[in-house]
Design a protein around this nucleic acid. Sequence first.
DNA 1: CGTCTGGTTGATCTAGATCAACAGGAGTGG
DNA 2: CCACTCCTGTTGATCTAGATCAACCAGACG
Lengths: 221, 221
Amino acid sequence: MDEWHDLDADELAFVTRVKRDHVFEPGEVIFHQGAPCDGMYWVRTGLTGERRLDPDGEMALVRLGYAGGALGYQELLTGKPYRNSAEALKRTATCYLSHAAIRELLDRNTKLRDRFLQRCVRDHEKTEKNLVAALNRGVRTRFLYALLKLYERYGQFVTGKGHILELPIARKDLAALVGTGPESISRTIRKLERDRIASFDGRTVFFPDLGAVQDEIHNVG
Amino acid sequence: MDEWHDLDADELAFVTRVKRDHVFEPGEVIFHQGAPCDGMYWVRTGLTGERRLDPDGEMALVRLGYAGGALGYQELLTGKPYRNSAEALKRTATCYLSHAAIRELLDRNTKLRDRFLQRCVRDHEKTEKNLVAALNRGVRTRFLYALLKLYERYGQFVTGKGHILELPIARKDLAALVGTGPESISRTIRKLERDRIASFDGRTVFFPDLGAVQDEIHNVG
DNA sequence: CGTCTGGTTGATCTAGATCAACAGGAGTGG
DNA sequence: CCACTCCTGTTGATCTAGATCAACCAGACG
């Protein structure tokens, strides 16, 4: 939580007094889309996903939340209801601060606002990148991009074996992240294997040449 | 410019001293993608577009900027180069503030930071909406959504004639906004006319029943 | 006049959506 | 232990939205 670096002793004491720690098991919902926003969550460890469901039943996985991420801070600042549902995708330890608590902190410490601003700009940057990818890249490229991002968090290089990624999420969530169905993910996986870009064994992915992956998505960045 | 309401007399004097007004003609570039960010622009009147070009030559129109909008403030806050090019789509009057000037103002007036934060959240909200639309809606729906947004700014209800929208931008830019080509826009226009949702005559659009439009996009909001 | 740009249409092709079937666990209950 | 169902993932067959390539027209502009 970058945001806390700027707090003085008093404020830190305040935080430790009013914060509420909570661990969510995989699949557990942290808050519901459309519900009034009563506070925000920090992701301490684990993995979360923000889903948006539209009236036609279409669901999109808008964003993943890693350790250090914040959930619902935008709604907290605008006072609107949560626009996405948040859910733990892995076992996730969170820290909750109520609306009132955050308000108090924001009033006391102006640097905190800067932190939020920085965070917001960075988050926006990412969604914008995803937007342009969604607008003019195919499923394959977007999927590779998602894999690469996951690799940056969960992947490792094992000497002799190469680049390995243990997928933290299921196929259908990969699909929802890319904006397609599980079938299309399955098929593009086959194609990627055929092209020797990556090979899949259940939830583990091997990249023979990570550079080849980077190459294919140089455009989305 | 909401942001200016919070400035005191001194600060306003400072702004009027250091700001640079500039009018851009249609098609004129305000700043280039990839160029170092030296300052930001307010849109006083007119219409701007932010374009992102990727290495493969694919271009997307990421966002339109109406009066009251801000250009390049995110890069200004992060210190990164402009990620999009900005261009005047109609004759646009802008007000430029240098990096140093904004920094000075931000240091002096903490409320100004809040304004930026609010703006950033709102902007992010919009791109997120566009993202989910791009992920799971077809060209037709996204196009209607774009038209509706334009109607909110440029449309008018003429008694006896109905809802009329004079399109401020060309077909190819409509296409770039939706993430498709001009041909597809042309074809979906025909379909919309066939379905009596809208009729087109050059750059003027008639909506016989605006409710029908709203209905078709209730999902994207 | 020719040339250019913006827009429309036609013909074709393909990525990807959709519907359906099926295979392997994993859990549950007899 | 087996039978059952549920859930995830994969594959096949088919269909369609939309991309792509090409021709064409109209107005703008030298």
